[in-house]
Design a protein around this nucleic acid. Structure first.
Lengths: 350, 350
DNA sequence: TTGAAAGCGGTACCAG
DNA sequence: CTGGTACCGCTTTCAA
């Protein structure tokens, strides 16, 4: 546990001054320091295993090359971690590091967490949430360049840029996939109004029907919830004791967990998936959608892309390229991606 | 975006020196600074919304009250996030903050992540993994007080303390639950050797049988994998086309996802759970075990407890209480907890 | 009771 | 080309 070498140690060892060390190790040696001193310095640094003290650097430069990521519950919950993964990819590639703080959905902790981060001289801030949602932007975020990922400021004059998935298009394309397979009677288990994603996906479902010139059967839409049991109950309501002719031929779900519940219900009722019933998920949850039996056709949330786009936006703002690239709009929508697997198939012929 | 107030600003406003400000705001004003100066200082600090610069503090004090948490993939994966949640609870309660860095399972990044953290003067380090596993302790971790959560150093002379779940007892108690319900023929879908948790849970299964004076049927144990499809396939192998008399009456799974697969298979085969077949999970995954249909009886991993215990151990080491409480052993095992839900029931009468 | 000054580890300016 | 010095913001010692 002995102390790390400082610039002074290196200077002594090389027989020069601290300033020389600083210059050389920062690549501005040429033209300022004699070649041979440079070599001695570099060697001394090497031997002492010297690396500059980041704290001292931050204090001096008033910047840290650290990006603070504030999460509502991304760390603790099973969802959406890849947003942070994507953000970190970009940050590292550009020479920044990210540190994450998770408030476990206690927004009362937002302000203090941000204060902590700010006190540590983070160069920028990202707020990331589990599931698309409006947030109250903590005040401190306006003090440094900041960005919102998977969430947005719903006030009339939003200050911060945000990056979110394009849920309407996602809902539409999911529905279109089913339509193209010949399904005309598609039930929709639509999550819950507690998330703005639900109505947006429903909107996509409506749009797809409209574009296909098909009526939307209102009693086929259920605000069900988000979990397996909700999917199960919803499916039972639509399928149990209903004659094949009156049954939807496909069920579209607002997430993969609902789809799991639906498949469970179908299995219990002796319906084959996808021969008798097609089932569509949403999210493409790792190790659920791909390992389900049958595996789920689903609309993948572009989590890593969201993280990447958000971090790119943020770092561009921080590093402020020459031209003021004010081009980046307040809102960036990243498209979802259809993943076709086994749970959907052609409409059964009756 | 204007600059924060410094101690000097406060001093000026209050008409005193910086030192006075420091003393008063750190509670050592009495006996050193005149009462009325104290009041003026406190008021000035208030008005200026002053809070000390954490960077300067760290530089000065050589400590930061920050704990660095290095995760293999806890942030990005859907699992085990609550270890970090529990750790953070304890840290905050004791006046520390945690920052998390996730390497996404790229151990080549361990060293540099730790270097980054160390350069930022973290007072301690925690390494946390998804799933119990042995790790190569990154060298830098020995330079500050450190602890391992959900992982361990398998070298002969481990340097660091670790906190892990008691998997053997977990496996045993899960089996005992089934035994107590009268099951005597219990199949085991046991995960994969890629995790040390698998053989430990198997060991528990064996121990329970031994304690009950029951033979272990070796061909009832399958190293299946960890995902839904593996559970499905494993269950089909044990159940499909097998006469009720030759069928196990219960299937114990090494995690909840396997149990989901087994339930799927049972549903497809027309077996009722738990009337015809009891199914036991492991992990108690949030929003899976509790929302499954039927909901899963399972052995809950004590994730928050692990995080809490690990952080407590770490902070005790850092704050070094008077007596050198060397009591804390190298290994702390936290018991798992049986959660009884709907998927297990009495053995069927034949 | 108060304030001046040193020092934590760097960087950058400037005189030599 | 080189080394001395001021400064980033704070704590702490010490002399007044």
């Amino acid at each position: 546990m002995n102390r790390k070498a400082t610039a002074l140690d290196v200077a002594k060892k090389a027989g020069v001054s601290r300033s020389a060390v600083s210059l050389v190790l920062n690549g501005r040696g040429d033209g300022n320091v004699a070649k041979e001193s440079q070599d001695r310095i570099r060697q001394a640094a090497e031997e002492l295993n010297y690396s500059p003290n980041a704290i001292a650097l931050s204090l001096r430069n008033q910047r840290s090359r650290v990006i603070g990521i504030l999460s509502d519950e991304v760390v603790v919950s099973p969802f959406d971690g890849n947003i942070i993964g994507g953000a970190d990819d970009v940050a590292r590639a550009r020479g920044f590091v990210t540190v994450v703080m998770d408030t476990e959905r206690d927004t009362a902790r937002d302000a203090s967490a941000i204060e902590t981060l700010l006190d540590r001289q983070v160069d920028g801030l990202m707020y990331v949430t589990v599931g698309l949602k409006p947030i109250e932007v903590p005040h401190g975020m306006l003090r440094v360049p900041s960005v919102l990922a998977n969430c947005y400021d719903e006030h009339p004059q939003p200050q911060l840029r945000h990056v979110i998935p394009d849920e309407i298009t996602g809902g539409r394309e999911a529905t279109e996939h089913l339509l193209e397979l010949g399904h005309q009677d598609i039930a929709l288990l639509a999550g819950l109004e507690d998330s703005p994603a639900a109505p947006l996906r429903v909107q996509g479902y409506r749009d797809a029907h409209a574009a296909a010139g098909l009526p939307v059967l209102e009693d086929r839409i259920f605000m069900a919830g988000w979990d397996i049991d909700a999917g199960f109950r919803g499916a039972m309501k639509v399928l149990d004791g209903v004659s094949p002719a009156d049954r939807p031929t496909a069920i579209m779900c607002a997430n993969d967990r609902l789809a799991v519940g639906v498949i469970l219900a179908a299995a219990r009722l002796g319906l084959r998936v996808p021969e008798d019933l097609s089932i569509m998920g949403y999210d493409d949850e790792t190790r659920i959608a791909d390992t389900m039996v049958p595996s789920l056709t689903t609309m993948a949330l572009p989590l890593r892309e969201i993280g990447r786009a958000a971090m790119t936006t943020l770092l561009d703002a921080i590093e402020g390229t020459g031209e003021p690239r004010q081009e980046t709009p307040i809102e960036t929508m990243v498209p979802c991606r259809l993943v076709v697997r086994e749970s959907t198939g052609p409409v059964p012929t009756r």
